[in-house]
Write a protein that binds this DNA or RNA. Structure first.
Length: 275
DNA sequence: TTCGACACATACGT
DNA sequence: GACGTATGTGTCGA
């Protein structure tokens, strides 16, 4: 009787802030090309759908989508820095020119530190393609709030889409007269990303989320900032990650507790302890 | 047990 | 408010 009623698939309540991301871990220093001063990247990310905190553990379901947004900024700088600056990465004793920055999303298994593949679907799900979450060329931006992300999911209205584009994307051609020293000149396409939004992400169906019959593996989502060099090599610059997460697989035992406690004339007794 | 496939239900955006 | 969609999850059968 006191069993929690399931939230409907399309309910707004499916949107909730998930596990918090760590402070930014810096792997390689970034310096301004103009004066060789060190500049500090801050990677910000948030999970907006798909994870629940239950008894101090963050739980996701392998069958369900999650949504994640990420962006980065430089400490004590604003977006205008990109209009006039280029950057270098310190790699050992040398410094390497960066042609643009990218961000990527990966999942790591805490037990063996291996990447576990993620997949994204389109809104068509089974009727559309699947692909790994793309690595996106990115410039600095603030991270939009949770309510914004919730409100832009599944929009079709042209006006809303235009607003979304303005907040989440940039076009080099819109910046007008760029300094010849602007890194924006060496971004790969006209369209660049300000806010990386990963929707309809799932752990690959092949994921084995159990260590033993009774114990779960743990996973971490990690958002990485990379610097792309003139030769196209990608260097990890910084990242931020979630605490360890539990991914519940498809086993019916992972769903039983959520069932409504109704007894039908012909059904077996189903008496789960109320949550 | 696991998976891909298909099915059903239901709140959302327009 | 009707209509088409998106998505959690129930189920079948290999």
């Amino acid at each position: 009787m006191f069993t929690k009623k399931k939230t409907a698939p399309r309910s707004g309540e499916q949107y909730k802030v998930g596990p918090p991301f760590s402070n930014t871990h810096i792997i390689r220093s970034i310096i301004l090309k103009s004066n060789n001063k060190v500049i500090i990247p801050i990677v910000t990310a948030r999970v907006d759908r798909g994870f629940d905190k239950i008894n101090d553990l963050w739980i996701g379901y392998k069958r369900n989508y999650f949504t994640l947004v990420a962006s980065f900024q430089f400490k004590n700088q604003d977006e205008s820095l990109f209009l006039k600056e280029r950057f270098k990465i310190v790699d050992g004793d040398s410094t390497i020119n960066i042609t643009y920055f990218t961000m990527r999303l990966v999942s790591l298994c805490c037990e063996d530190d291996l990447e576990s593949p993620l997949v994204q679907h389109t809104a068509k799900r089974d009727r559309g393609p699947q692909y790994p979450p793309p690595e996106l060329p990115v410039i600095t931006s603030e991270l939009p709030g949770h309510e914004i992300i919730k409100s832009v999911a599944n929009i079709r209205n042209d006006k809303k889409i235009a607003l979304f584009n303005q907040m989440f994307k940039g076009e080099i051609s819109n910046y007008g007269k760029l300094s010849k020293d602007s890194i924006l000149r060496s971004y790969p396409n006209n369209q660049i990303t300000k806010v990386c939004k990963y929707e309809r992400v799932q752990f690959a169906s092949s994921l084995d989320c159990k260590k033993t019959v009774t114990t779960s593996k743990h996973f971490r989502l990690r958002v990485e900032l990379m610097g792309v060099t003139e030769t196209g090599e990608k260097l990890l610059v910084a990242y931020s990650h979630t605490p360890s997460l539990i991914i519940r697989g498809r086993s019916p035992s992972n769903y039983k507790g959520l069932k409504q406690n109704v007894q039908l004339p012909n059904s077996k007794v189903n008496s789960e302890t109320p949550a």
